[in-house]
Each structure stands twice: as C-alpha cells, then as structure tokens.
C-alpha cells in the first residue's frame, strides 16, 4: 500500500540544514497496524507528513498503491489525501467554529459527495465513535477524549484506506488513551491500514508492527507482522529483529 525507498528529507532554514530523514525505507502493506516510535526530534512526524502527502521529500522514492507520488501536483496530492488518507492529530485540530456535524463534514465537502450521502456518512461515523447524540455541539463543549473521537470520525468519514495518526493519545490520560486505542484497533480490524506515531511503549506494543526511528533512520523494523497482541497481554513485549 505504501512504500518508501531510501527517502530523505532536508529542511533548510537560514544557514542550517536539518536532515530530518535519511535513507528512510519502509514498506507498509494493506491492512497493517504500524506503530512508529522514537525519541523526540527523530523524524516521526516528518515521516507521517510525507506519508500523508502534507510535505514533499528531498530524495528517494515513494509509492502509494504502486504509484510514484513524486510527480504529483498540489491539487492531485490534495485529492489523493482526500480520497485515500485519513488524519488524526495530537491536538485534535477540530475547527472551533463548526459543530461536530460540520466538522466531520469538512473532508466530505471537498470530496464532493451528495448531501444525502454526506449526512449518512456523518451520522454513521459519529455513531461509531459514540457521539451521535452530540452532533450539534461545538468542540469546546467536549472533553479531550471526545474531541479525539470526533477527529477519528472525521478521519473515517470518507472511508480512507490509510489512517495516519500523530500521537493521537498524546493529550489524553491513560484511560481515554486506551479507549481511543481500542477504537483504532477496531477500525484496523475492519480493514483500514493504520500508521500511528506514539511515545507510549504500551500502546506501541499493541500494534502488529513496530518501527523505531532514530536520527531520521529506521533502526528497528519488524519485517513480518507479529502475532496480534492479546487484549490483556500488557507485559508481552515482542522484539524480533
């Protein structure tokens, strides 16, 4: 589904060049749940941004569904993002001026679905995250966990095949974090590929595959998916080189 070969990313600001990614290779298959870990500043967000077509890369190759994205223009990338990719952010990034219904509606509008179709999808997905009854509420009237669930509903509304999440639980307490994690696992079970950046080893351990990034390079990479971690197996730490 997603394949990067020897990818590099250089940020140039004034005099300094930051090599956020170098010789970065990874292959994520359809239906996988990949957790990305690594120290702060190692390049996790950069990887996710490039994977989600939010940023361009400086060198190497990157394919989505076998198609190289390096030649795509801004509009094509936007469309691809809109159709194939869902985003979940650490800061939720709900639009404060819109109620939940309209927030979930945002990507659907750009997709150009019919009004009826949009309404169905919004209601379905808000129901899926358990917030159907609060459609007319505004983000400021919700708890952090609830806001993140709205963000998930928004990410899922367009039925993307790839879900990218940057520390989706970073702003939540552990109880809420677990709730969000369970939701993601369920989504993954239904067939959506998920790449999630996290600092929480416990959550990372629940993913099928772990990618460890240090200094812009993949240092630890599960070539084969591990066995699914049992629901209660919190001390089962898999390490396969």
């Amino acid at each position: 589904m997603l394949k990067m070969n020897h990818l590099s990313k250089v940020y140039r600001t004034h005099m300094i060049e930051t090599h956020a990614l170098r010789d970065f290779s990874i292959h994520v298959r359809e239906g996988e749940f990949v957790a990305v870990t690594g120290p702060s500043g190692s390049g996790k967000t950069t990887f996710l941004n490039i994977a989600g077509l939010l940023e361009e890369f400086s060198g190497g190759e990157f394919f989505i569904d076998g198609v190289s994205v390096s030649g795509l223009g801004d509009d094509a990338r936007s469309r691809l993002r809109n159709e194939k990719i869902g985003f979940i952010f650490q800061g939720f990034n709900l639009i404060p001026d819109l109620n939940l219904f309209d927030n979930v509606d945002v990507p659907l509008r750009y997709r150009g679905f019919s009004a009826a179709d949009r309404k169905r999808r919004i209601e379905e997905n808000l129901a899926r995250v358990g917030l159907a009854s609060r459609m007319k509420h505004f983000p400021s009237e919700l708890s952090g966990g609830q806001q993140q669930r709205v963000a998930i509903a928004r990410a899922l509304a367009g039925s993307p095949r790839l879900l990218l999440a940057d520390e989706p639980t970073g702003n939540l307490d552990s109880l809420m974090a677990r709730g969000v994690m369970e939701l993601l696992e369920e989504i993954n079970r239904q067939g959506t590929t998920i790449i999630m950046v996290t600092h929480d080893p416990e959550l990372a351990a629940r993913a099928q595959r772990n990618v460890h990034v240090i200094d812009g390079q993949v240092t630890d990479f599960d070539e084969e998916p591990r066995l699914r971690v049992p629901e209660n197996g919190r001390d089962t730490v898999a390490t396969t080189a």
């Binding site: 939010l54 509009d75 936007s78 985003f87 952010f89 990034n93 639009i95 990507p107 750009y110 928004r154």
Partner: peptide, 16 residues
C-alpha cells in the same frame, strides 16, 4: 492558520 492547515490535510485544494 491551523484550521486552514487542517483543511488542507483533510484534502482541501488551494482553490478550495
């Protein structure tokens, strides 16, 4: 700005 970025991330084109 952040809202605009979010919209862009969710698939809005520049034209949008």
């Amino acid at each position: 700005t952040k809202q605009i970025g979010t919209r862009r991330a969710l698939g809005a084109t520049r034209g949008n």
